[in-house]
Design a protein around this nucleic acid. Sequence first.
RNA 1: CGCGGGGUGGAGCAGUUGGUAGCUCGUUGGGCUCAUAACCCAAAGGUCGUAAGUUCGAGUCUUACCCCCGCUACCA
Length: 700
Amino acid sequence: MSTPVKRYTVTAALPYANGPKHIGHLAGAYIPADVYVRYLRLRQRDVIFVCGSDEHGTAIPNQALKENTTPRAIIDKYHALIRDSFRELGISFDVYHRTSEPLHHETSQEFFLALHHKGLLTEETSEQFFDAQANAFLADRYIIGTCPRCGHPDAFGDQCEKCGSTLSPAELINPRSTLSGQTPVLRPTRHWYLPLQNYEPWLREWILKDHAHDWKPNVYGQCKSWIDAGLQPRAMTRDLDWGIHVPLPDAAGKVLYVWFDAPIGYISATRALFQELSSGTRQFATPQRDFGAVQPDDWKTYWEADDTQLVHFIGKDNIVFHCIIFPIMLHASQRFIVPTNVPANEFMNLEGNKMSTSRGWSIEMHEYLTDFPGKPDILRYALLTNLPETKDSEFTWKDFQAKNNNELVAIFGNFVNRALVLTQKFFANMVPPRGPATPVDEHALAAIAAAPAAIAAAIEAFRFREATAALLDLARTGNKYLADTEPWKVARHDLPRVGTILHIALQIAANLALVAEPFLPFSAQKLRSMLRLQPHPWTAAGSDTLLPAGHELGLAELLFEKIEDPIIDKQIKKLMDTQNAPTPAPVVAPLKPEIVFDDFTKLDLRVGTVTAASRMEKSDKLLRLTIDDGLQARTILSGIAKHYTPEQLVGQHVTFIANLAPRKMMGIESQGMVLMAEDGDGKLRLLQPDHPVRPGATIS
RNA sequence: CGCGGGGUGGAGCAGUUGGUAGCUCGUUGGGCUCAUAACCCAAAGGUCGUAAGUUCGAGUCUUACCCCCGCUACCA
């Protein structure tokens, strides 16, 4: 709204290097970001496209344990895999860095210290689980125990991988440390917090007011939700030995929170880019344009100058970090600019279900590249036309096939092929001269002139589906033009007229080659070579003189190939097979330690009759039961709403623990615990006597 | 009434400030034969989640409710 934009810093979410990344990630961030950047480059704007691997956090050591190797080996492996996949898919980063690099550690520590020296971080002490034997605080992921929901014996402290529940370590039954197997204890620990709440007025001004109209509704809504809920201080450090050390004298064993250091990775990557550009080395930098002579410090303008536009491309899971926390860090630094826009996408589902690498329900980038060699553009196109821009979308293999066969092949590729084959046939593969234009010709020329602006407007508004559709519309125009003018018929009596028609058709093809570059870079390149067309800036798009009369064309080949059913069926089968893979044997909980008879007699187990049952408001799982135990009506809350309706329970016998200390949940006191048999798959069933008994009957 | 996003022809989606409901794919019929049985034209197909309200007029505004997705919470 103020200063004209002089340069762009475009980032795509740092992929977490704990495993391969799938096409949902591509659809969420990388493909739209790449289209945007390639477009800006064609506009000859000053843009950098930065990314890198996010290699810290607790999940990396965790994955190392799973794969029985070291964190270093994990990040090396997945960094390379992800980086190479991106490159093969044509994601044109100027630099792909990694957060394990010393330069990033240094950048992050400087950032942390800058905030610390300004007095913007607070120190607080809280209680966290500690493993006395390993002498280490345990991140949630390092604590495992029996899941209180499904009984899975190896649920993590933050989440049960089996039933998907979100947990906190305190909920686990028989919690144990993965480091030593010991039961962890609570112990106080000190951390540095960023008081997010202090920045609420600024956020309200910056997001809710200044960006009320230019940010996407899903992003804006999420931000508003967070701000209105009231922001809390957030710990920016962790007790861990994998990560970036807190650069303070009294902070042994403390590292920066991964979400503190990861977004700083964008800055580190930018620094790395300019270091390598100025020194001529190429380790992480893969410059996609001529940057000219630069100095190492030139990175600063891309993060500090007001006339730089910073755009973060991310998936919706990252909104809070890129719109709230990182901007607060940037703003608090009083040095860096904050993002101009954060065009986050929703999620892409796969054949009806959420994508998940761990459950095998996904298409990994490297798998696609192996199964469809030389066809990155088809995936780019299929994702682009189906981006989850406003809501979750769905990828199916049939749709992928249809998009390729009916659109890329039949409309785009076929038009180009028609124009080239006709030119070969009638004009010895030379661009014929153009004669007087008829109204039909004028119409086609007008379409050529209008297309680039329509595409550009959609890209600049972050509407990539629309932009892609506009691209294909130009190819449709070409097909229609040929159908309307019928050069194969005209050839029988008026060859010069055929020349005019093909001249215009070839200009359409040339324009396609130009404006397709951001979307389908490999095919655009191929088409350019078929036309022997030099690269042009975007400003040349819309011109009807890209190919001069007399210009000799190159060798015509098929731009896209049909994909036959068996290929698609094979992919679908592959996906289905992952679900039919031998399901892990039903979980039978391991035996607990032996107890003596006295331990058993401490339990007062009884049978009661349910006299009333109702759902608890605001709870999916809790039922409020009133139970006649022979003495009184006692209230017990039970987490069985997913398994029984209140109506089913009234009148039923239930067994319960009568002398369990009362516990308040959702504001209601629960006086006991109803016993349930739990199946391996998490289903709960009542435990009942096989004949009616009187309420209060004891169990022994 | 926890928060956010979304519910529009068979499928996937557009619909800016309220003024006769559009696009792509699919379907059906026709045309064409240069082209990867591709292309072009036409038609059929929607009570815009439900109900009420504001208005001369609502997919578009208000209210209530229903459903889907995500986040959050309870789970003795």
